[in-house]
Design a protein around this nucleic acid. Structure first.
Length: 377
RNA sequence: GGACGGGUGGGUGAGUGGUUAAAGCCAACAGACUGUAAAUCUGUCCAUCCUUGCGAUGUACGAAGGUUCGAAUCCUUCCCCGUCCA
């Protein structure tokens, strides 16, 4: 069992601070999990990720690693932690997001999802049971149930049909997971995922149904699929109060830097998002004073660091002008420096929030960040 | 001196009489990116004007003339560049 130790709760907002005791170290929450889809957070070494950024947990993807190199290969090589040389915690997504992102390459049935590989077209059936097996073969500390990440917008009926199937899949996944765990010594958790599109009543219904599973943690999925920002937050508000107080809550796939406090304030403990890493590679850098689009001509001869307040390697050693040069020249070092910085920014925000919650100053922190206009320069 | 080949918008390079202000690529300048099919994708990219429209006008395919209703495209002369022969 994955133990979650609640350390502090904000008396005003829903924010909490806690410790998640995984088989690969303690994760301090609220936490942001960098995304390493193919067993690597693009552009950074595991050494930098651990020693410099001090990330405690990263996310990897079942669909992608199943296709290449394959879960059996990874298992034979000692599991994903060893294979990727990442000794800390790993959460794996089930492939549920690919139901959304690769919607033209898959077919959903009651049994599961039939994907046609984006690499070579080969058909692969993903079921609630098989995705559990694949994730256990990886050695994931936290596995996710197979779900259907529904696009936006969807009708109430579509959302209901999809959600009911996701619930049935969660039950099957859990039955299978519990059977498998009878013969496995190490600590692994399986999180179910609350769906229900943008309908508060469905979100609530889904959450209540999934409570029966008595899971070690609960995820909220199906957000950031094209809906307005306030809707995503409303859905979290409609869900979190129904989830068990003593289990971690994970909102999947969010968000922009200024949104992180909003989710934490609503009682969210875990988040992940490709934004810091993907946007970094695309030249969009997040700083304390807003985003910096490094290709802009105005940075051509700017000797200042990207973010004077940031202590990351990039900000301590390089000018905006140099970073712009690397980006314009298509140099691979740009991706590394940019990703290092953006992840530092995200992880720092999470650490600041955690400190504030522990000190009881989270309301002031929230007020302060909310009053900063979001700069787009 | 002679024989060929060639000179197109910042670069490269299509286009050989009519939706050509001129393909594509690159550069430049912007925009997007939310459980990663993404080191990706999209837009702008001659000038001026406005009722910002698959708008108006002007200028433009080495230079100057010419043929034609119409020329980057055909003809004449000239100027450059490349290869080869003396």
């Amino acid at each position: 069992m994955l133990r979650f130790e609640l350390q502090a709760e904000c008396p005003v907002t829903g924010a909490r601070a806690g410790l998640l005791h995984t088989g690969h170290g303690i994760v301090e929450t609220p936490v942001f999990m960098p995304v390493g889809t193919q067993g690597t957070v693009k552009g950074v070494t595991p050494r930098d990720l651990a020693e410099s950024l001090d990330a405690k947990i990263i996310l990897a993807n079942t669909y992608h690693l199943f296709l290449r190199p394959g879960h059996e290969t990874i298992q034979r090589l000692g599991g994903l932690h060893k294979f990727a040389s990442w000794p800390r915690a790993i959460l794996t997504d089930s492939g549920g997001f690919q139901v959304f992102s690769l919607n033209s390459l898959r077919k959903i049935t009651e049994e599961g999802v039939l994907f046609h590989s984006h690499l070579n077209g080969d058909p692969h059936m993903f079921t609630p049971e098989s995705t559990v097996d694949v994730q256990l073969a990886f050695g994931s500390d936290i596995a996710m149930v197979l779900d259907e990440c529904l696009g936006y917008p969807a009708t109430h009926l579509e959302a209901k049909v999809s959600m009911d199937r996701t619930i049935r899949w969660a039950r099957k996944g859990f039955d299978h997971f519990r059977r498998r765990m009878e013969s496995i010594e190490s600590i692994h958790a399986l999180f179910p995922i609350v769906q229900g599109s943008m309908y508060a009543d469905l979100r609530a219904e889904c959450a209540r149904e999934l409570l029966d599973l008595n899971a070690d943690g609960y995820a909220i999925g199906g957000l950031s699929v094209g809906e307005p920002r306030d809707l995503s937050q409303e859905m979290v508000e409609a869900t979190v109060p129904l989830l068990p107080r003593d289990r971690p809550r994970y909102v999947m796939g969010v968000g922009m830097p200024e949104e992180l406090p909003e989710y934490v304030a609503r009682g969210v403990d875990m988040m992940d998002c490709v934004l810091p890493s993907r946007n970094a590679r695309n030249g969009c850098l997040f700083t304390a004073s807003g985003k910096v689009i490094i290709k802009h001509a105005k940075y051509k001869e700017d000797p200042a660091p990207l973010d004077a307040e940031c202590r990351c390697y990039t900000c301590r050693n390089f000018s905006r002008a140099y970073l712009r040069h690397l980006f314009q020249a298509g140099e691979i070092l740009f991706s590394t420096l940019a990703t290092l910085h953006n992840l530092q920014r995200y992880l720092d925000i999470m650490r600041q929030m955690r400190q504030a919650i522990l000190l009881g100053t989270f309301p002031q922190y929230l007020h302060a960040v909310r009053s900063v206009p979001i700069l787009n320069s």
